[in-house]
Amino acid sequence: MRTPVAYFLLLSAILFSLGTASVLLRRNALRIFMGVELQLNAVNLTLVAFSRMHMELDGQILAFFSMVVAAAEVVVGLAIIVAVFRRTSTTDVDRASVLRG
């Protein structure tokens, strides 16, 4: 494999910062959530890259667990978004600035 490991890490860093930017810039809760998913994927990429570099499978296992947890998180997160939308008829997080339902 000729591509330096650092390139993957750099790509991961860029994707992570783009995911973060999405979280910070978008107001739609669903878009924010997509940003979070992108961040998670970027970190997974790092894990797999290091797994390859250190010749160990544990990094891949960790990425695998991360995907499982992300799946669970998506399910609950989307359900919360749906529940909030039912109540307030909006997915704009700036509007949801009080804890009172």
Binding site: T20, V23, L24, R27, I32, V93, D94, A96, S97, V98
Partner: peptide, 13 residues
């Protein structure tokens, strides 16, 4: 403590 989630996220970041 504005209650705006994105502000919190910004501080976090």
């Amino acid at each position: 403590q504005s209650g705006k989630v994105r502000r919190y996220a910004l501080s976090f970041m």
